[in-house]
Design a protein around this nucleic acid. Sequence first.
DNA 1: TTCGGCTGCGAAAACGTTTCACCAAACTGC
DNA 2: GCAGTTTGGTGAAACGTTTTCGCAGCCGAA
Lengths: 348, 348
Amino acid sequence: MDDRAPRAATGRAKRGARVTIHDVAKASSVSVTTASQALSGQGRMALATRERVKAAAKALSFRPNAIARALLKQRSFTIGLLTNDTYGRFTLPVMAGISEALVDRGVSVFLCSVERDPVIGQSHVDAMLEKQVDGIIASGKRLDSRLPVDLSGVDVPVVYAYCEGPEGSVGFVSDDGQGARLAVAHLVDRGCRRIAHVTGPEDFAVVHRRAEGFAAALAAAGLAPVRAEPLIGDWSEAWGFAAAGALLEGPAAPPDAVFCGNDQIARGLIDALTLRGLRVPQDVAVIGFDNWEIFAAATRPPLTTVDMNLKDLGRHAGLTLLDLVEGRPVSPGIRKLPCRLVVRASSG
Amino acid sequence: MDDRAPRAATGRAKRGARVTIHDVAKASSVSVTTASQALSGQGRMALATRERVKAAAKALSFRPNAIARALLKQRSFTIGLLTNDTYGRFTLPVMAGISEALVDRGVSVFLCSVERDPVIGQSHVDAMLEKQVDGIIASGKRLDSRLPVDLSGVDVPVVYAYCEGPEGSVGFVSDDGQGARLAVAHLVDRGCRRIAHVTGPEDFAVVHRRAEGFAAALAAAGLAPVRAEPLIGDWSEAWGFAAAGALLEGPAAPPDAVFCGNDQIARGLIDALTLRGLRVPQDVAVIGFDNWEIFAAATRPPLTTVDMNLKDLGRHAGLTLLDLVEGRPVSPGIRKLPCRLVVRASSG
DNA sequence: TTCGGCTGCGAAAACGTTTCACCAAACTGC
DNA sequence: GCAGTTTGGTGAAACGTTTTCGCAGCCGAA
């Protein structure tokens, strides 16, 4: 069929005169009831009739009005994604996962950035609720912080993704402990025996989770950490750079591997090691955390790192929200999703 | 008023029984007409009546159903944002600007990532149109590439933001030439006379725009470039690092300033200069492009760089789309929005 | 007293879809 | 030939708003 025919048909009246199911019904000489059923596969009718309606719909390039359907069905096939992660480091993969999981079920996503402002946040939530979202996903940049909005009173389902929710809520987080164990096990496999841990600020929950996983994996391998405590700093390259000095300059023997709390720290550490004439990974193997490609792939050598599978996390959050929306039973609680190790050259 | 009263009222029936304007009308013993007009400030009625209705609405925590309104008014107060910038480097600031400009006008934004796949893209566009978006903003990661979807046939207004649109469309891009001139003028002001330009691949339009701006600003200052042509490479730190060698090892005198095509190149260049014992900015001043905070603030010294004001660009795109939606005249064409220079330590 | 204008409010239509209830005709078995 | 069933289809209500129109009742003026 000529692709331009429908165009012409659409433009039959003044701009903005959308083609409705009434037009389709008229064009195929049936009632709107029959037209609706023909297109949705419901109802009983002669096959010929159904085909005729479908052909007419196609010829008119009929697009069902989701707004009208939503009004009737009390279901908008729309969800809201709230985030305080302005920079998008964590939210975007989550968003991509949600979108990917829901697009073929006809669900669209409102994205709202709430920053730190409860007033802005509340106005976004109000707008979502007025637009009759079927559910809300709250997503953050820290596992252990809450969004500046109160979602306890809303009458649609809420799922939390990579952020903290209230007691009894449904949430998804990465299993940072497992990620850390993965990293350490990999280093041990590679023959490393003196492994250090350089990480971020103590007030981040992930710092403790990763440190616990680090300690557990060492213990499981029968090894003692090269330092009694992880080296605590901030999440920056500068700290990684400085930490190298602290690790090498003590009286103790230097480590043969370092597990870093994030990729930036690993980057700084590798720079410092290289500057001191140490080879990565031959002298010291290094593993990061986050798999932030722009860093992990740009370090020299490319960085082995733990990927939190945030896209997967988003997918799970989306599908679970759909379960809640459609009334399927979902038990409350926080689900930890496994991380995966991305092996590159920095670990040998 | 006790905050819990409305809650109880809302929950008067089974879960999900939303409170409608009929409930408000009944509670204040008026017709729905009067209730609607009382709340919207329209119509004529006794002040007492209006106040009574408003009080009832508040007590019931009435939230007007935007879906119903949209169906009637043929206006959903919803727009779609299409992007192929999976990583979010450019889209997120644009998105933030759009959202910021439109939230207080009651407009919400559907975000759709179309990657490179025309099929996915088309399905997202279809979903948006079915949901009756008032307009679409197409946004990309390159000024000179198009989204993998054809928006020429859609019957809602389209605005392009940081991506290329078809002839006669409305678009917003950053004025990279002006940004480059800003950078060079700043260097000249600081006393630099031998200025080089290290930039990205030639098939990017921005490479040429920035190079033109660079050349124009040098000419305006009566200077010749330290190299006849910009140094072309890729957008990586590694290239910046390598470019330092190329700049310093020629027979010509070394530059006293380098204007880089992006922040990553600048980062690599600074690292290489430092390694060679040159001081930034005393020996060589360096300016980047993009103001990607994670890089610009982490270089040592912190990087002076050109910010494309993408948030502003988003704001303009959003407001212009609103103009189109509401029928105000908008002349077609590409509007260039000015960049701004963010001065940090790397330029003196 | 009648007429016009103003005030305060309500009835009903409209937006586009889905679905329940129903109906006429044709067909079936006996 | 007739009761019962199947086939193929339609009418109308419903979702929650907004808006146009109209209708009483009242007031002031002629």
